[in-house]
Amino acid sequence: MEPQNYTQILEFLLLGFYEKPELQPLIYGFFFNMYLVTLFGNLIIILATILDSHLHTPMYFFLSNLSFVDICFASVTVPKMLVNIQTQNNAISYAGCITQIYFAALFAGLDNFLLAVMAYDRFVAICHPLHYTIIMKPQVCGLLVLMSWIMSSLNSLLQSFMVLKLSFCGDVEIPHFFCEPNQLVNLACSDTLLNNMVMNFGAWLLGGGPLTFILYSYSKIVPSIQKISSNQGKYKAFSTCASHLSVVSLFYCTVLGVYLSSAVMQNSHSAAKASVMYTVVTPMLNPFIYSLRNKDIRRALKILVKKETLKAAIILRLKNHG
Rank of each mutant, 00 (worst) to 15 (best):
N65C: 11
T133K: 12
F238L: 13
Y132D: 05
V172W: 09
E2Q: 11
Q232F: 04
H321T: 15
G96S: 05
I44P: 00
L36V: 14
T254K: 00
G16I: 08
I303S: 13
M162H: 00
P181N: 05
T192S: 05
A188K: 04
G233A: 05
S67W: 02
L13G: 00
N195V: 08
K273E: 04
N231C: 08
T279E: 00
L318I: 11
C169E: 15
E173S: 14
I9Y: 05
A104I: 07
E22R: 10
I85A: 03
I297G: 01
G96C: 04
V280I: 09
V172G: 05
D191M: 00
T212P: 01
E180I: 10
I101C: 09
A237T: 09
G109F: 02
I214M: 09
V163W: 00
Y6L: 11
P181D: 05
F178L: 02
F31E: 04
Q88C: 08
T192G: 01
F62I: 09
D52A: 06
S239L: 07
A272S: 15
K20G: 00
F251I: 02
V117P: 00
V248W: 03
L39D: 07
K319T: 10
V198A: 10
S224N: 06
L164D: 11
I221F: 02
Y120M: 10
L205E: 10
H176I: 00
S230H: 01
T49V: 11
P287A: 03
L63Q: 10
L301R: 04
H269A: 03
F238A: 13
V255W: 10
N33R: 09
L304F: 12
Q86F: 14
H244E: 06
P138I: 11
Q8R: 07
P138M: 07
L13H: 13
C189L: 05
A74C: 08
F61M: 04
K273C: 05
A188F: 06
Q266E: 14
F73A: 13
S53L: 03
L26M: 10
A74Q: 02
V163M: 15
A105F: 06
N320M: 12
S291D: 01
V280R: 00
V78D: 02
V258N: 07
I45R: 04
K311V: 12
L157D: 09
R317H: 14
D171E: 11
F30Q: 10
M199H: 12
N231V: 12
A91L: 07
C72L: 13
F288T: 03
T49Y: 03
S246G: 00
V145I: 15
T282A: 15
T309S: 15
H54P: 00
N267Q: 08
I225T: 05
L47V: 11
D191E: 14
I289F: 04
S262C: 07
S167T: 04
L157I: 13
K20L: 09
S190Q: 02
V76D: 02
S148W: 04
L23N: 12
I45D: 05
S156C: 15
Y18V: 08
N320Y: 11
P223C: 12
Y120S: 06
K302D: 07
K295A: 13
L55M: 15
S167I: 03
V247M: 09
I214P: 04
A237W: 01
I297V: 15
F238T: 07
